[in-house]
Each structure stands twice: as C-alpha cells, then as structure tokens.
C-alpha cells in the first residue's frame, strides 16, 4: 500500500473512532471545562491555519498570487450570505480569472 492509502485509512479509522467514542463514553469523562473550550477552539485554529496556507503558501515561502482573489471573493460572499456552493464557484472563477490576466 502507498503512503497516501495509509493516510486515507488513518483518517477513516480515526474520524470514525471519535464519532463512536462520543456515543459511547459517559458524558462526565469529557465535560471538564478546559476540554470543552479546547474542543471548540481546535477547529478555529486549524481552519484558520488551513486558510492561510492554502491561500498564500508556496514552496517554503509566502506568495501573493491569484488565490488571494479567490479568498477576497469568498469574504465578500460570506458577508453577503451567499450559500456555500455558489461561493466556491465564484471564488474559483475569481482565482482563474486573475490567473488568466
């Protein structure tokens, strides 16, 4: 098996195990205040880092290119409450357009 398949397998097993754990553990185990706050913030920190890297990371350098136009379009769409799917299409179109010119 390739490394990529092992990665896919790890994601599948890990994510399912977490879902099953939620339905199986007694609630008191995880209701500690710090755990609850950390769990709410982990997606925020990781998603923010993912946005940054996806929008502006090149080969070991920060680059400004057409992707930033996609992110700017996404911000405008989110402020205007455009639904998820049209937002992605507009962001892709903006990125492609800026790349073309």
């Amino acid at each position: 098996m390739t490394d990529l398949w092992w990665g896919v397998l790890a994601v599948c097993v890990g994510c399912y195990a977490l879902k099953l754990a939620g339905l199986s553990v007694p609630p008191a185990v995880l209701e500690h205040r710090l755990t609850v706050r950390a769990t709410a913030l982990i997606p925020v920190g990781l998603l923010a880092a993912l946005v940054a890297v996806q929008a502006a990371a090149g080969d070991r350098e920060v680059v400004v290119d057409a992707r930033l136009a996609g992110v700017a379009t996404a911000v405008a769409c989110l402020l205007a409450r455009v639904p998820f799917l049209p937002m992605l299409v507009l962001a892709a179109a903006a990125t492609a357009l800026v790349r073309l010119v």
Binding site: A40, P43, V44, L47, A48, L50, V51, Q54, A55, A66, R67, A69, G70, V71, T73, A74, V75, C77, L78, F84, M87, L88, V89, A91, A92, A93, A94, T95, A96, L97, R99
Partner: peptide
C-alpha cells in the same frame, strides 16, 4: 486553470466563518 486552489481556501474560510 479553473481556480480550484482558490476554491479550497474559500472552502476552509466558509467552514471557519460561522465559528
């Protein structure tokens, strides 16, 4: 060429926004 990389960044932003 069709801007999919920009759409991925937008997808993460869309998932982040409501939080």
């Amino acid at each position: 060429a069709i801007g999919l990389d920009g759409a991925v960044a937008a997808a993460f932003l869309g998932l982040l926004w409501p939080r």
